[in-house]
Write a protein that binds this DNA or RNA. Structure first.
Length: 466
RNA sequence: GACCCCGUCGUCUAGCCUGGCCCAGGACGCGACCCUUUCAAGGUCGAGAUCGCGGGUUCGAAUCCCGCCGGGGUCACCA
């Protein structure tokens, strides 16, 4: 079995394209077939090498590796012009295609006329029997009968031939049209299953007729539904982030993206979390739903955190690296330190970006104190407590979460306080806010010196208030 | 407009082929409570779907049949 993903490089890889790519990849891996990447860059003006690179990067990030495709030559339509020419010649020689010299203005007039009569415009077939030797090349469509697309997701879909017209294979300037390229490419790449977006379903009968005219075997088709925005309209930039790149930058984990995309339209009973191996093993194109699916960022983020929670600390720490760098934060060199930090943050971050924000205080001193709780804690009494805390912590040689806790327990005992009082005061002093991971872990990670220094700073502020 | 696709909690879905186990199950989100040094995480409970609507078949329909409505896609010498 051979499948392909054929994006046109007109921008970043879109979420919908990513899902189509994923379904193709899963299908290939599940059946031990080949996954091919082909770049549909016929429309040169809109294609750039940057966008191709961007798509390739996005697929790489998602872990969708291809068995055939770039950078090997021959997988970009612009490199395959000879193939299209040869197939066009065959069609012409076999009488399955003919030249048409109807001027565009005339066709445009007919189109408007048809529109006025509230009819679908279809080419009249004026040049069918004229035996011209130049012009645009059109495919001769049988007038009678119907073509049925046996879609793996939708079941049989019938199209009457009278709804179709003799479409253009090759333009007057000699360039092949998209629908023709697709057929030639799929056929010459020996694609057995065409899994693509639902928006191509209507084009499929035209393509099938072309396969038949070429006397080729028709592949199987599976048309995946569209991804919709909250307003149930096709997902677009208007709905916010839609490129894979954007989610990557937002710190979503790729395994979450893959898991989420797979679950969007496909299900395996009640299971929600699937490893890549699970997906490869369980994926079945027949269980892909036929209806459109609304993209739900909240659920994606939930899944992302599921992976944040279960990834090995070292792995997570490594992945956090680029995000820390982007925020201008530098982790300590101490072996295991960043892993420890990440360990305290994983239960409170859905994305790597959120993890950086929530853990910022590990890397730099608080720029200020949260104005809401500050007046409550940074008082004369607060200053006294901070002094006592700093004194006792400075004397703690081991400085582990356990030893620090002992210091706190001892002090609340002596002062007749509860742990919250001291914990929140410390949080404010050390992180700038009253929400943080378990405070003893935080202090242990910060180290004795840094902790004492931050307590001293806060104490100075508290005393100044007085 | 024509043709084609789609229509189960707000959202993703299971169930539909092979009617009864479904006065519809799970998950996200939402609410409450528990746990608790804060925030989370976790646990428990809850609200939430007359299965798009209307007919029919049947002892019985989300599941089968017919009609309708709503949403989307395609109708280019664009891809």
């Amino acid at each position: 079995m051979r499948v392909r993903f054929a994006p046109s490089p007109t921008g970043h890889l879109h979420i919908g394209g990513a899902r189509t790519a994923l379904f193709n990849w899963l299908f290939a891996r599940h059946h031990g077939g080949a996954f091919i990447l082909r770049i549909e860059d016929t429309d040169r003006s809109r294609s750039t090498d940057e966008t191709i690179t961007s798509i390739v990067d996005a697929l790489g990030w998602l872990g969708l590796d291809w068995d055939e495709g770039p950078p090997a030559p021959g997988y970009r339509q612009t490199e395959r012009m000879d193939l299209y020419r040869a197939h066009a010649a065959r069609l012409l020689a076999a009488g399955r295609a003919y030249y048409c010299d109807c001027p565009p203005e005339m066709l445009e007039r007919e189109r408007q006329e048809a529109e006025r009569r509230k009819e679908t415009f279809r080419y009249s077939g004026r040049c069918r029997g004229r035996g011209l030797t130049m012009g645009a090349l059109r495919l001769r469509i049988p007038a009678e009968g119907a073509t049925v697309v046996n879609d793996l997701i939708h079941g049989p879909v019938t199209f009457e031939h009278r709804q179709l017209d003799d479409w253009i294979l090759v333009r007057t300037d000699g360039t092949p049209t998209y629908n023709f390229c697709v057929v030639v490419d799929d056929v010459t790449m020996r694609i057995t299953h065409v899994i693509r977006g639902n928006d191509h379903l209507s084009n499929t009968p035209k393509q099938i007729l072309c396969y038949e005219a070429l006397d080729y075997l028709v592949p199987e088709f599976a048309h995946v539904s569209m991804i919709l925005g909250a307003d149930r309209r096709r997902l677009s930039k208007r709905h916010g982030a839609t490129s894979v790149q954007a989610f990557r930058e937002a710190g979503i984990l790729p395994e979450a993206m893959v898991n989420y995309l797979a679950r969007l339209g496909w299900a395996h009973g009640d299971q929600e979390v699937f490893s890549r191996e699970d997906l490869v093993e369980l994926f079945d194109i027949k269980h892909v739903g036929a209806s459109g699916a609304v993209f739900d960022q909240a659920k994606l983020e939930w899944l992302s955190q599921e992976y944040v929670k279960r990834l090995p600390a070292a792995d997570l720490a490594r992945r956090l690296g680029p995000f820390l760098a982007a925020a201008g934060l530098v982790p300590r060199e101490t072996p295991g330190w960043l892993e420890g930090v990440v360990e305290t943050l994983r239960e409170r971050a859905k994305t790597l970006v959120e993890m950086v924000e929530r853990g910022r205080f590990y890397f730099e001193r608080p720029a200020g104190y949260d104005p809401k709780p500050a007046p409550k804690f940074l008082t004369a009494e607060g200053a006294r407590r901070l002094r006592l805390l700093a004194e006792r912590l400075a004397a703690d040689r081991v400085f582990t979460a356990a030893s620090i806790e002992a210091v706190y327990r001892g002090l609340i005992e002596a002062l007749g306080l509860t742990l919250v009082d001291l914990a929140q005061l410390t949080r404010l002093a050390v992180t700038g806010t009253t929400a943080s991971p378990p405070i003893f872990d935080v202090l242990a990670l910060l180290g004795r010196e840094e902790t004492v220094a931050r307590l001293a700073t806060a104490r100075a502020v508290a005393e100044a208030v007085r």
